[in-house]
Write a protein that binds this DNA or RNA. Structure first.
Length: 225
DNA sequence: TCCATTTGACCGTT
DNA sequence: AACGGTCAAATGGA
């Protein structure tokens, strides 16, 4: 039973982001009507709208085509999953400057040097995969020289575990974002900055409260599908 | 000792 | 045959 698809998560996040940006714009306007920061808030708002529009559009297309969310989720229980994902699978891609904020706990299971890319591609699966959660994601740095670094994260599969499973694992505190992955992960170097590599307990970079519908989507800077 | 990460190898798709 | 996704043994840290 699919509880929260990556699409839905991102859509929800972006909606929250949009509301927050609108609120911020109001605050700025009230504080200083001529503040140049208003334009910044407006820009954030525009980005959110574009992402939401994209997401809504792609979901509508999927429904229309009668396709499953993805290949992994479509695999029947008992059948061995395909070793390689079909290229027909349409992932949800998010471009973000922070790979650690998406509300789920991820575990790295592979790394691959990709042709024409200076940085390797990282493969993660949901930390609750042993509970039947089929969600996976693929993290790839977008442009080699981007500063700050931007990453394209492609989400596959559905979270059968919910993000709440992560919260439970955290002893009821606000749910974690994402486990950082390993000592050589360039993503962690950028996103977690000075944090020493490794233990998932110290690398949550979560600054919101998903359980209350208010978690931050600050890392997301754009999206394309 | 357990668990997460690393990394080379395997295998499916194009 | 090349490419890319996943597996699984080896490794290292707590």
């Amino acid at each position: 039973m699919a509880l929260m698809t990556p699409d839905a998560v991102v859509l929800e996040l972006m909606t929250m982001g949009q509301e927050s940006a609108a609120y911020l714009a109001d605050l700025l306007r009230a504080a200083s009507p001529s503040s140049p920061h208003q334009e910044l808030a407006a820009e954030i708002l525009r980005c959110c709208r574009r992402v939401i529009a994209k997401l809504t559009d792609s979901r509508r297309k999927k429904r229309k085509a009668g396709q499953h969310e993805d290949v992994a989720a479509a695999a029947a229980p008992g059948c061995s999953p395909p070793k390689k994902r079909s290229r027909g699978a349409e992932p949800l891609s998010v471009v973000t400057s922070d790979t650690t904020v998406d509300g789920f706990i991820w575990r790295k299971y592979g790394k691959k040097e990709i042709n024409g890319r200076r940085h390797p591609r990282l493969y993660h699966r949901c930390a609750y995969s042993h509970q039947g959660c089929t969600a996976t994601r693929r993290v790839q740095r977008t442009h080699e020289d981007d500063e700050p670094a931007a990453y394209e994260i492609a989400y596959y599969g559905e979270h059968a575990c919910r993000g709440a499973a992560a919260a439970a694992a955290c002893g009821g505190r606000p749910p974690p974002g994402v486990v950082d992955f390993g000592s050589n992960a360039w993503a962690s170097v950028d996103a977690a900055a000075a944090a020493p590599a490794a233990s998932e307990h110290q690398l949550w970079s979560f600054d919101g409260e998903m359980s209350q519908g208010g978690w931050s989507s600050s890392g997301v800077v754009g999206a394309r599908v």
